[in-house]
């Protein structure tokens, strides 16, 4: 039986040659979560048959995942809650969240239809986060993007139904800095144990179900604290 590399090369050779690459306008709408489910599926079908468009897809995921660190107008990247496939050796399990975050940050974050993005709030120059099919998750509101202060702490839009929450804060290397106590509020102060030094941080909020269901984590969002 041919090895996996040969199967892949043979597949790509047979799949190559299509010229119906998505136009720029479609890539733009994909990157801004504006494609319908059918349109998105058609693009992904092409992406998995066309090496060229596979590269473009990867590049746009990277662009999105990193742009939000300096452009508040870029859509937020998304952290999927990964169900770990098998127990890991203890030495790799240490700092599990940090590893998860680091791995997720290295991946590409172009979200699926209905995931988080930005939309016009109806007020000039003001945009609000929206969520589609993932409405049950809490949605980080602030801090996101470039901020000059963290005095107002963390705030998020409630999950449905309302839950209790905890916040996790990571540094630019994906190392866990702080996990908040549980709260029923949709905001919490910056931790006194973490000095708000300039630099990049990541955070997310996790909703804890009242009756023992699955916890749901928000997207992992980035912000740059500038002084």
């Amino acid at each position: 039986m041919p090895d996996p590399g040969v199967l892949g090369r043979a597949y790509r050779m047979a799949a190559a040659g299509g010229s119906d690459h998505p136009p720029e306008e479609v890539w733009e709408r994909l990157a801004c979560d504006e494609l319908s489910a059918d349109e998105r599926e058609a693009v992904l079908d092409h992406v998995t048959c066309c090496e060229e468009c596979g590269q473009t897809y990867r590049a746009l995921r990277l662009l999105r995942s990193e742009a939000c660190a300096f452009d508040p107008g870029a859509p937020a990247p998304e952290l999927k809650v990964v169900d770990i496939p098998r127990p890991v050796p203890r030495r790799f399990a240490v700092g599990g969240l940090a590893a998860l975050a680091a791995a997720a940050l290295m991946l590409f974050f172009l979200p699926t239809t209905g995931d988080f993005g930005v939309q016009d709030s109806g007020q000039p120059g003001v945009e609000v986060l929206r969520s589609g099919s993932a409405a049950v998750r809490p949605v980080p509101i602030a801090p996101i993007g470039r901020v000059e202060t963290v005095e107002s702490g963390f705030s998020w839009r409630a999950a449905t139904p309302p839950e209790t929450y905890f916040v996790e804060l990571l540094n630019s290397d994906g190392e866990h800095l702080w996990k908040s106590p549980e709260t029923a509020s949709t905001s919490i102060d910056w931790p006194s144990s973490v000095s708000p030094a300039a630099g990049r941080y990541y955070w997310r909020v996790t909703a804890l179900p009242a009756e023992g269901g699955e916890r749901t984590a928000s997207t992992l969002v980035a912000f740059d604290l500038v002084r």
Partner: peptide, 16 residues
């Protein structure tokens, strides 16, 4: 149409 994100949109096109 999307004031806060138009540079991002332009960047998407430019990446392509």
């Amino acid at each position: 149409r999307h004031p806060a994100s138009y540079v991002y949109r332009a960047a998407v096109r430019e990446t392509v």
